[in-house]
Deep mutational scan, measured.
Amino acid sequence: DTINITLPDGKTLTLTVTPEFTVKELAEEIARRLGLSPEDIKDTHNGKTLDPSLTLAEYGITPGSTITLEIK
């Protein structure tokens, strides 16, 4: 299953994830792909900052969802 990550420059990154991924694991994968530190990444969905300890499923993030990435 894939989700879309909207980057600060407007580009989109597509990642393969499972509903059990935590937001922290997602940030780590994004950081790895972009050459950043996971601590520099802030993920938001529907205007809410995502708690790193919760899973994508707990936020109702499903395949095809879009998450907005902010760099701290």
Rank of each mutant, 00 (worst) to 15 (best):
L26H: 00
S53I: 04
I41E: 01
P19Y: 04
E25V: 03
N4A: 08
S37I: 11
I71Q: 06
P8R: 08
L36V: 14
P8N: 11
F21M: 15
E39P: 14
I67S: 01
T14I: 13
I30Q: 00
K11T: 14
D51Y: 04
I61W: 11
T14V: 14
D1H: 12
E29A: 11
L15Y: 02
E25P: 01
D9P: 02
D40Q: 13
Y59A: 15
L15H: 01
T68C: 11
E20K: 09
H45W: 15
I71V: 09
T14N: 07
L34E: 03
L50W: 15
T2Q: 10
T14Y: 08
T18Y: 11
D9A: 04
E58C: 06
E20F: 10
L56C: 04
P38L: 14
I61M: 05
E58I: 03
Y59P: 00
L50M: 08
I41W: 08
A27G: 09
E20S: 12
K48T: 15
L54V: 08
L15S: 00
L56M: 04
E29I: 09
R33G: 04
L36P: 00
L54D: 03
T12I: 12
S37D: 12
A57I: 10
V17R: 00
I41D: 01
H45L: 15
L26W: 03
L13R: 00
T62P: 05
T18R: 08
G35H: 08
T49S: 07
L15M: 10
A57C: 06
V23C: 06
L7A: 04
G60F: 04
S53N: 14
T18D: 05
I30C: 04
P19Q: 07
S53T: 11
R33N: 07
I71K: 04
A31G: 07
F21L: 13
T55S: 06
P63E: 07
T68E: 11
G47S: 03
I71Y: 12
P8A: 10
D51C: 06
G35Y: 04
L36A: 06
P52F: 14
V17E: 00
P63D: 11
L7C: 07
K48D: 13
L69M: 08
K48A: 14
T55I: 02
K72A: 13
T6P: 02
T44A: 13
L15C: 05
G47H: 07
L7H: 02
R33S: 07
A31Y: 09
K24R: 14
R32W: 10
A57K: 12
L50K: 03
E20D: 13
L69H: 02
E39T: 15
K42S: 13
Y59L: 15
T62S: 08
V17A: 03
L34F: 10
I71A: 05
K72H: 13
Y59D: 02
G64C: 03
A57H: 09
E70D: 09
R33T: 10
D43T: 15
I71P: 05
S65D: 11
T55N: 03
I71F: 12
R32C: 09
T68H: 14
D1Y: 15
T16A: 13
E28A: 08
A27W: 15
V23W: 14
P52K: 07
A31V: 05
T49H: 14
K24F: 08
D9V: 02
P63G: 09
K24D: 02
R32H: 10
D51S: 04
N4F: 11
I30L: 11
S53W: 05
P63M: 08
P52M: 14
G47F: 15
D40E: 13
P63I: 05
S53C: 08
I30P: 00
P8T: 11
K42T: 13
K11Q: 13
S37C: 10
T44Y: 08
P63Y: 04
I30H: 00
E28G: 04
T62G: 14
S65Q: 08
F21V: 07
E28I: 09
E58R: 01
G47R: 01
T66P: 02
A27I: 15
A27L: 15
G64L: 03
R32T: 07
L69Y: 03
L50C: 15
V17T: 05
E25N: 09
G64V: 02
P19T: 06
E29K: 04
P52D: 12
V17F: 11
R32G: 07
V23A: 02
L13D: 02
A57P: 03
D51P: 05
T6F: 12
K42L: 15
